[in-house]
Structures are given as structure tokens and as C-alpha cells.
């Protein structure tokens, strides 16, 4: 547990020393949101709002998580190796990415909502879905960015590898979030919410179990 927090702190420090990565992601979100604003000259329907929001968030998340291993393909791996067990390393990275993606998601909501309106009928449900998606995304994206970093310099690799793995979650959560925009019943949607949390949990477990194999050199 100690190691996990160490990793989170270390990650944050390192990332903060290269702050431009945060800002570049913010600019990325701003510009893509603005594009969707330009494309839709009139008011945007709920389904389009939903689709655009999740696509923008998904690509921002892929980029954010990719950065988490990008800088340390080889050198820092060795540095960590003496420091912590691989299990705490992956947990730390996932937790860090979870916090990162959560904040990123909130920012996306603010920027996207600011320009395109907040049509949520049930904001609590929407935020819960965002939170669950950040958890599932971070579990998958962290492991995949580890794979991509180890596989070497193919810049398209993280997106190719992670997006197909994210489809089950994306389909479930886009359905759920559309309902949270148009009117949400907790009882009706409980099974889908459980599926979404189980998906996040399974991804978390798989990342945790498989990372040590990735790690071994």
C-alpha cells in the first residue's frame, strides 16, 4: 500500500515537472469541443451530444493514459524495479490514471457543456457513469499503454490496442448516459450499472494479474 501511494506521488511530481502535457490535453479537449461546436450550427440533439461527448472523452483518455508510460519506456522501468513490487506499480499507475481521467472527464463536461449546453436530466447518474467509466478506462488503458510502451515506437499502437478492448464499456455506458440525459430510472438501469461496474472490476483484476508478466525482463 505504501508503494502504491509512492507511485502516485512520484507520477504526479514527474508529470507536474512536465506540465505542458496537462495543458496540451486541455487544449486538445478545447479544440475538439470547439470543432463539434462549429459542426453543429444549431442546437444539438441528445443523441449527438452523447456521441460527441464520449468520443471526445475517449480519445482524450487514450492520450492521457498513453503518456503515463510514454516517458519511461526503458529507463524508468529500471528505476521503479528496485523501488516497488509490480503489483503496487500497476495499482499506483491505475489509481493515478483514474484520478487523472476523473478530473479530465469533469473538465470535458465543463468545456463541452459550456459550449453545447448541459442537457442532463439526472446529473448524479451522469456523474456516476463518468466515474465508473474513468475507473474502467484507466484499468484497461494503463495496461495497454504499458504494452505499447514495451512494444516500441509505433505511435498508432495505443489507440489500436485499447479502443477495441473498450468497446464493451463504451456501448454500455453510452446507452446508460443517453438515458441519464433524457430521464433516468435507477431501478430500470440497475442491471446495466452493475454490468458497467463489473466490467471495470474485471479489467482492474486482469490488469493487476497480467502486469507482472509484462514487467519481467
Amino acid at each position: 500500500m505504501q508503494g502504491v501511494f509512492q507511485i502516485i506521488k512520484l507520477n504526479f511530481r514527474l508529470e507536474w515537472s512536465a506540465r505542458q502535457s496537462y495543458f496540451s490535453l486541455l487544449i486538445y479537449i478545447l479544440s475538439t469541443v470547439y470543432i463539434s461546436n462549429l459542426v453543429f450550427e444549431q442546437t444539438i440533439g441528445l443523441e449527438s451530444w452523447n456521441a460527441f461527448f464520449w468520443v471526445i472523452f475517449l480519445f482524450a483518455a487514450v492520450q492521457a493514459a498513453y503518456r503515463s508510460f510514454y516517458f519511461e519506456a526503458d529507463r524508468r522501468f529500471l528505476l521503479y524495479f528496485g523501488l516497488v513490487a509490480p503489483e503496487s506499480l500497476i495499482l499506483g499507475k491505475i489509481l493515478y490514471n483514474f484520478l487523472y481521467l476523473g478530473v479530465l472527464g469533469l473538465f470535458t463536461v465543463l468545456i463541452f457543456g459550456g459550449l453545447m449546453g448541459f442537457p442532463m436530466a439526472n446529473p448524479e447518474a451522469f456523474l456516476l457513469i463518468l466515474f465508473l467509466s474513468a475507473l474502467g478506462f484507466s484499468a484497461i488503458l494503463t495496461l495497454v499503454s504499458g504494452i505499447a510502451a514495451k512494444a516500441g515506437a509505433n505511435p498508432a499502437l495505443p489507440a489500436i490496442l485499447s479502443i477495441p478492448l473498450l468497446y464493451p464499456q463504451i456501448i454500455t455506458l453510452s446507452k446508460l448516459s443517453l438515458r441519464s440525459l433524457s430521464g433516468f430510472s435507477w431501478e430500470v438501469n440497475a442491471p446495466l450499472l452493475i454490468v458497467l461496474s463489473l466490467l471495470a472490476l474485471v479489467s482492474l483484476l486482469l490488469s493487476y494479474l497480467l502486469f507482472p508478466y509484462l514487467w519481467r525482463d
Partner: peptide, 18 residues
Amino acid sequence: ARLAGVYNIFAFVMMIVF
């Protein structure tokens, strides 16, 4: 072998879910 193995296990689980 290691990278592909890790990815394949993940891929299979996601395929079954899907």
C-alpha cells in the same frame, strides 16, 4: 511472447463479454 500473451488473454475476456 509476453506482450502478445498478455494482450491475448485480455482480448479473449473482452470478446466473451461482448
